[in-house]
Each structure stands twice: as C-alpha cells, then as structure tokens.
Design a binder for these strands. Structure first.
Length: 573
DNA sequence: GCCGTTTTCGGCCCGACTGTTTTCAGTCG
C-alpha cells in the first residue's frame, strides 16, 4: 500500500518534536510542523502527485528540501534524517511531549538526567519523588504529572461535533446566567465546524469585574481546573473534554473572536499580513503604534488588513486568504438553500418512522421534495427490499403523493453496489424510480484499484445517480476504504452522476477536502441526511457545514435545485 | 527550512498562566 499523507505528516511531526529537544533552530522546527499540517490536510496523496510527476515544492510550506524528503519517504517508507536524530534522541520521547505540561525542555531534562523514555519510567520517577529534584521542576509539577498520567493513553482523542454540541449546550446556559455577561460564544474548531473537536474554546464578552471566571470553574461538570486567571481559564470536564474560557470586553470582541476561532495557521498568516502593513494583531485588536485601530467586529479586523470577510469554515489557511485578497471568496451554501433531502429511510427497512411520518416531517422543514431511499435486498441486516418490497413502496409513495400537495415524495432506493460492480436490483425495476442512490456496504477491504473499478463500473449503469457515503468511513470507528476518489469524481462527471455528502455526524463522508476536490473536479454533490428517523432529518446542517468547509456554493449542490431542475439533472445523457 | 508588492538574506505571530524563580523560563493555544 502506498505511503499515506497521514504517515508522512506523522514522520515530520515526530522529527519536529525531536529536533525541538535538541535545541534546533525553532523556525526550522516550525517549517517541519507546517509541512506536516499542509501534507496531512492535502486532498490528493503525495504518492499520487509524485506518480503524476507533479512538483511538490509548489505546495505551501514545502520547499526544495522537503519535496525531496517527501519523495524519499514515498519511495522507501523512511525518513533518513529522522533515523539519524533517533540515534541519540529516542522516538518515544515524542510521545511524552503529548502529556500536558511537558514540552521539549522538560522532556529533555527527564531523559538526560533520569533516563526516562516512557510513561512507565515517568510514573516510577514521579512516585519516588525524583522529579521534584530536577531544576525547573518542583513538587507541584510532579503531582500534576502523576494526575495526568492516570488518563494518558498517548492518543489524542477528538470527539464528534454533535457530541461536543450536546456537552457545550448546558455549559453555555450556565455561563449566560452570570451577572455582567453580555455574550457567550463558542469559538475554535467548533465554530469552524470541523467534523471533530479536540477541545472547546468559549469566548465571553463581559463587563470588567464580572464573576464569570468563578462561575466557570464552579460548573458541576468540571473535574479538574488546569489554570484559572482573570482573562483566561482552563478546565477538564467529567467527559474528559478540555474547555478553555476567555473573557474580553466589547471593544475587543471581534479581534478576540478572530483570534480564538483560529485556525492557528490562519491566524499566523493574517498576523504576517498585518506586520507587513506596519500593524500588530492580537486578541485585543489591530494596533498601529500601540493605538487600537480595529477590533470591535471581525469584519473590522479583516477590512483593516485589506481582506474581505472570511467565513469561519474557511479559516484553515488553505487558500482563503489569497481568495479574500482578490475578493474571490466563494459564496458558501447555506442551510436555507437546501430544497429537499435525497436520502432517507423508513420503517420498511431500518428506519424508525413510517413513510407518511417522514413526509410530514420533511414538509415541516419547508422542503419541496424528499426522496425515500430504503435499502436493497443484499443488506439483510437492514431488511433490505427485494423486488416485491420495492414495488409495494413505489405504490405507497404514489398514493401518498396524491394526498400531498405541498411536497413531492421521490421514489428512490439505496441500492447495494455488489462486489462485481453490478447493482443489487434489476434495471427494469430501478428504471421505475425517480433516482437511484448507490452504496458500498460490504467488501470494504478490496485493493484500491479493484474498489475504484467496482464503483466506476456501477456508475456505468445508466440507472445510477448518486454515490452514497463515498468512502464508507465512520469517524473514530472505521477508516475509509481504499479508493481513488479523484478518478471516481472524474468518472461521475463524465457520466452525469453525483457524489453524496452524507450528513450523519459519524459519517460526514465526503470530508471537507474531498468536497473541495469535487468542486475542483467539477462534479456536483448531494447533501443528504441519510435519516433513519424524523429527528435525523436535522443532520442536514452538519452536511451543509462540511460542504461549506469544502468551499461549496449553492450551485455546486444538487438539492438546492427546484424539483423540475433536479429531475433534469437526474436524467442521464 | 521556507519565502519574497522593500528582501535570494534575514527575517519568521503573540500573549496568558504556572511554577519556580526572586525576574523569568516553560508551556500552551
């Protein structure tokens, strides 16, 4: 299997950790970290780019040296410089740096003076009171390290956006009730609508002397207070989620919101622009010679550095700044642009509600159409429909459509793509439907080329319209199957097919960068809830968020179309 | 190690909190 971008990024990140311990030039260290991030985020794999003879040094943060190192990694799986460094600085030290409170300097001291290379070594030394004797350490640090070690697994765990929403809601209500508090907002990756969040950044606008900090650390879900100051506090909740709270005054609100929304890479890029114009940006505003010239709103901050306003979902330093400078930012799709849902289930297979209940719920959301796409027979665990079952559902939908006059129920199916690329029901039957959603539900482990061929062969069938959850991944549960998405997107465009952004919070498949790839390829996508109950229809907003992160506009989305336009697009040529 | 609307050399984002210090280094975001 070719070396993945994630693996390359991990090697560079580890190299950065170890170099930091060796007191390497901090800017060189940063260059490796930037490269790791840039590569990890990139939508095409480095291996593919090299196979196509692309010049990697044109990628942001990648110069001649790093391009060559990437080539070596792809060709040999190894990074010689890292191996050289590991000869005198064990790779395991990079793991220790993940423990909160331990950075390069302290880890280096631990290694050089106490020969500690693992979490186990560290725990032993802390228990026997040896840590406090080191210079720069003390009793408190020793205690904290022991506390952190209890829950340290070495893996950073990010939780799904929906789970974060559930956790943050009561906390916001709790903070909102504090005297002197004007506004409470969640910033960070939560506001950028990333599919997972590692921690929560909450920004409170309050008058001076507000008690909000006291109240924050007294919240009954707080397990541990990490730090607590006048403007900034940090806690860990019982769920294990890390929450940072910052308090600012109204005059700084916009600058603070920018600052704490990030991403870090975006902020750094913005601040560099400010510096080149003779300004300084921090969380309190934009300053010229210590005089604040902007900061009340985010719009002010961007305007001051000569940029159009950038939506939070785009703030990843993936080209949005250049686009803002040229006034060429996309006009991102909004939830209100969505006219219907093209993938949902009923009780006929594994859904929880009846056809009529789903229709009523969709109408209540203002939709013009709803496609009922139950499973096909191969998916036995979901009681997939056979010929008879589907015909019965078609008749029921016809009858229901006669009764409804303000929403149209589209006849659809989520048909299995079989191993050989054929569809699970005969064309004569699929031809009677308004649209066909097709999906891979088994044989996830085919080699990349075979999986790609399987899906493209399925698209050759003129009944095929939309490829559901194109990579099959489940966030934090199951990796995507090996597939060449770029090839699939090109094939879909050529054949008049579409890809789905499945809006289930655990799927969000396509990913944000895949959405961008779809846009660049010119293939349109459907944002679909894949609802298995009436409540699930609201997952649509997560799909819209993901699409926005992928730069998609209303025009890039199939289900922003009116019914007649939608039907035209579903006609294969 | 990267990068260029002053630059191919000399810069590289900025502040808060903690603990161990007696004025600041380390870490974090």
């Amino acid at each position: 299997m070719p070396v993945s971008n994630t693996e390359i990024a991990m090697l560079f990140d580890r190299l950065a950790d170890l170099l930091e311990m060796e007191d390497a030039n901090p800017f060189r260290v940063r260059a490796y970290r930037n490269a790791a991030r840039s590569i990890g985020d990139y939508s095409s794999s480095m291996a593919d780019l090299l196979a196509q003879h692309k010049d990697l040094s044109t990628l942001p943060g990648i110069g001649k040296d790093l391009a060559e190192k990437i080539r070596t990694i792809v060709e040999t799986g190894k990074l010689p410089l890292l191996e050289e460094v590991e000869a005198h600085t064990p790779a395991a030290l990079s793991e220790l740096m993940k423990i909160e409170g331990l950075g390069p300097k302290r880890v280096k001291a631990l290694y050089q003076q106490l020969h500690i290379t693992s979490a186990e070594d560290l725990e032993r030394a802390a228990r026997s009171g040896k840590l406090r004797e080191l210079k720069g350490f003390g009793k408190k640090i020793e205690e904290k390290i022991l506390l952190r070690l209890e829950h340290f697994s070495g893996l950073e765990k990010r939780i799904r956006l929906l789970d974060a929403e559930v956790i943050v809601k009561p906390l916001l209500a709790w903070l909102q009730q504090t005297r002197g508090v004007k506004e409470v907002r969640v910033a960070g990756s939560f506001r950028r609508r990333r599919e997972t969040v590692g921690d929560l950044d909450i920004l409170v606008t309050a008058s001076r002397g507000s008690e909000v900090m006291d109240r924050f650390v007294r919240y009954d879900q707080v397990k541990e207070v990490i730090s607590s100051g006048k403007t900034r506090s940090s806690v860990i909740l019982r769920t294990g989620l890390h929450v940072d709270l910052r308090v600012v005054t109204q005059a700084s609100q916009g600058a603070a919101l920018c600052y704490f929304t990030g991403s870090k890479a975006h902020n750094i890029a913005i601040r560099k622009i400010a510096v080149s114009k003779g300004y300084k940006i921090n969380e309190y505003g934009v300053f010229k010679n210590d005089r604040r010239i902007a900061g009340k709103t985010e719009q002010d901050v961007y305007r001051q550095v000569g940029l159009a306003y950038i939506e939070p979902e785009l703030r990843e330093n993936r080209g949005e700044i250049e686009a803002a400078r040229k006034n060429a930012l996309p006009e991102l799709v909004r939830l209100e642009d969505i006219r219907g849902d093209l993938h949902c289930h009923t009780r006929a297979t594994d859904g929880h509600n009846s056809l009529e209940e789903m229709a009523t719920a969709a109408r209540a959301r203002g939709y013009e159409y709803l496609a009922i796409s139950d499973h096909s027979r191969h998916l036995t665990v979901a009681h997939g429909l056979d010929r008879k079952g589907l015909l019965s559902e078609i008749r029921q939908i016809d009858r229901l459509n006669e009764k409804l006059d303000d929403i149209v129920i589209l006849k659809a199916i989520e048909v299995d793509i079989l191993e050989d690329g054929t569809l699970d029901l005969p064309d004569s039957l699929l031809g009677q439907l308004d649209l066909v959603v097709a999906a891979v539900h088994y044989k996830f482990n085919l080699p990349r080329r075979k999986q790609t061929e399987r899906i493209i062969r399925a698209m050759d069938n003129p009944c095929f319209n939309i490829l559901a959850h194109p990579t099959g991944r489940l966030i934090n549960e199951r990796a995507a199957y090996e597939v060449d998405l770029e090839k699939i997107m090109t094939a879909a465009k050529e054949r008049g097919c579409f890809l789905e952004v499945n809006a289930q919070p655990a799927r969000l498949d396509l990913t944000d960068s895949d959405c961008k790839l779809a846009k660049d390829t010119g293939v349109k996508v459907a944002i679909s809830s894949d609802a298995h109950s009436i409540g699930n229809l609201d997952y649509m907003r997560f799909g819209v968020d993901q699409a926005r992160r992928g730069w998609l506009e209303a025009d890039d989305i199939l289900n922003t179309r009116k019914e007649d336009e939608l039907r035209k697009l579903l006609q294969r040529h």
